[in-house]
Design a protein around this nucleic acid. Structure first.
Lengths: 358, 358
DNA sequence: AGCGTTTGGTTAATCGATTAATCAATTCCG
DNA sequence: CGGAATTGATTAATCGATTAACCAAACGCT
């Protein structure tokens, strides 16, 4: 896997020291039996020559590329930077590289993206599946990052619990009539978040759930949420399933003359890049991507290294080991981040400042 | 580079058809001389067996991995998804994969990230340099994506021209007093954008430039921009260097009771994911990432494939070919996207609705 | 017919690291 | 002291694709 033109190789080190390449290999990998001082000398020589092992050579021999594939469902998802960074870091810490692939946002299914990665010879896949899709058996271990309620899931944030935390926060602030706003009703993650919210809201609290995507599909991307109307009915808080949605709600309310959190509280999810810098800063729920990534990567690597024996030469026989990896810890807690977009519920009778629409 | 356990290889196809592996290789790559109908038969057999070439084997032999490295300066940059997607797509179209690396946002410099990619054997690098840094000679071709005014730049959007377009737009709307808002004065890109704005503003237009980052460093992340005060002085438009900044300004103004674009017009840059969905939707400038990526990748690949002859066995001698690749087209035009956050300048005497501060 | 050329294909070397199989030299121990 | 176990290192095969060198047969041309 390397364009190691002039680079020194094992043979160079070996001949420089008058030993065999096998010994050099053993010394550097610490596997075979090599005397301590020879190891020392070899290490030194390797450093001196600036030796970098050839991934291609190693991969060819060992059958492992040292590269993991990261499959994103929709790269437009603003959570992507966090995911990519966390995964890259976790993989890197374990000596692996990360090859990315996305479904290009369109018709091309995630199957194609997976296929491309497999062809590139990745040792394993980390898949953030497209809303609710399942992936069939592929030729390598797969770690799925979705939501604990998804079957076959490996690791993810505890979205349900995140929803509970947000709901409890609003409940504590005295909100009695809350609008739950989702985007795509087909998304497992979003359903869990909303499910958690509902579960945490007492019976004395009135709530209504609206899914945006179906509305948008009919009304075009600029379709208004008709929030002012909803607030007139007494809603004092809008709990959304994403900071992006929260931002939309926030600005729409502000434009309509409502004060946040004075008249209406707004919450998001995911703690996206813009969330702390808008005014008011968004109250949201943060997921520990670093931890999730670490767990996913470690579980994946365990499966990869464990699978070595499976390298059968016999024709493909049914494996008892499932493709999808299971991790010890499958759900990582989310953290409530309270900022300025939430506050005490507005006193009973709703006030509509100036009912103008932009 | 592959864990091709049971997968069929060239030998399998060859023996199945009673020919040599060399012939199979030639047939599939179309390089050697093979009769038309034998090519046909080999192709068919390959499909039948589901043959996938081993990257490891190929890489080892050819010295090329078929993988490009993408180095991001700061993954927190919300432009990242667009970049990553565009690069991945461009590379994929050319039969290459993309390995990502970021500087982890901290101390670890981008040099480390580059090093990791080189060690993984990438054939070339696409570097979006950290504000103003230069990268030294590395062992492979590099395409830099920054701004045309940066020495060594390969391709980028024409940020200067983007600034001009925005400024002209505001000028056309009758704005006479404009605040130019940047973030990091050390960024070449941002300087170009602001430079373009200034250049396009006539002498009858008053403007002032403020850099946010230095202010924030002293006042903490929550430091207010004191925008209300500025608006009192007669500013009717704020032209920022990024949608993120624009969003910040927008929400801060709205919270302070100003109307956008009624009282103040706000513009951004980059057309980030949230820009169309906030209210009012942001007027901004869009860069054609797909085109930039395509140019960068093609230029890089040209250098890579052209360099083949350089695979000298002789000791490292000075190369006349520079590491950094140049493309024919180095600047890609930006596109002004007019949405709802800009409008005619507010009539001369500034109106301050309710001077309350959050 | 005889000699050069083209066509179609094979042989074998090669890329670089890994590792099972050996082998030589010590060391151990009853 | 002598056979067994241990230590330290070497040999050579191997992963899979590519490609330079080579060869045989068919063809073309005078």
């Amino acid at each position: 896997m390397a364009a190691q033109r002039t680079g020194p190789n094992l043979t160079k080190i070996a001949s420089a020291l008058g030993v065999s390449t096998a010994t050099v290999s053993n010394a550097l990998s610490g596997k075979g039996r090599v005397s301590a001082d020879l190891v020392q000398k070899i290490r030194q020589k390797a450093d001196e020559l600036g030796y970098v092992p050839s991934n291609a050579g190693r991969a060819l021999r060992t059958g492992r590329s040292g590269v993991l594939g990261l499959v994103l469902p929709d790269i437009a998802n603003p959570l992507f930077p966090q995911i990519a960074q966390a995964m890259e870091m976790a993989a890197s810490n374990n000596g692996y590289g990360v090859l990315i692939a996305d479904s290009r946002g369109e018709v091309t299914t995630q199957t194609d993206a997976i296929g491309r990665l497999i062809e590139r010879g990745v040792d394993g896949l980390i898949v953030i599946p497209r809303r609710g899709t399942r992936i069939g058996a592929v030729g390598c271990p797969v770690a799925m990052v979705d939501t604990p309620s998804t079957p076959g899931n490996t690791v993810s944030a505890d979205h349900w619990n995140g929803g509970e935390q947000i709901a409890r926060h609003l409940s504590d602030l005295g909100h009695k009539k809350i609008l739950l706003l989702g985007n795509d009703p087909a998304s497992n993650v979003q359903n869990d978040r909303i499910g958690g919210m509902k579960a945490a809201l007492g019976h004395d609290i009135c709530h209504q759930t609206i899914w945006l995507e179906p509305i948008l599909r009919n009304g075009g991307t600029t379709a208004s949420l008709k929030l002012p109307h909803l607030v007139e009915t007494g809603v004092t808080a809008v709990a959304t399933v994403s900071d992006l949605l929260a931002l939309r709600v926030l600005t729409e309310l502000q434009t309509a003359g409502f004060r946040v959190p004075g008249h209406v509280s707004v919450t998001g999810f995911d703690d996206l890049i813009f969330s702390p810098v808008v005014t008011p800063a968004l109250t949201t729920v943060h997921m520990d991507m670093a931890q999730i990534a670490e767990i996913a990567v470690v579980a994946l690597l365990a499966e990869i290294t464990g699978n070595r024996a499976i390298k059968t030469t016999t024709p493909p026989q049914k494996r008892t080991v499932p493709d999808t990896v299971m991790a010890d810890t499958s759900r990582v807690p989310m953290e409530l981040i309270i900022r300025s977009s939430t506050g005490p519920a507005f006193p009973y009778q709703t006030h509509v400042p100036n009912g103008e629409t932009l």
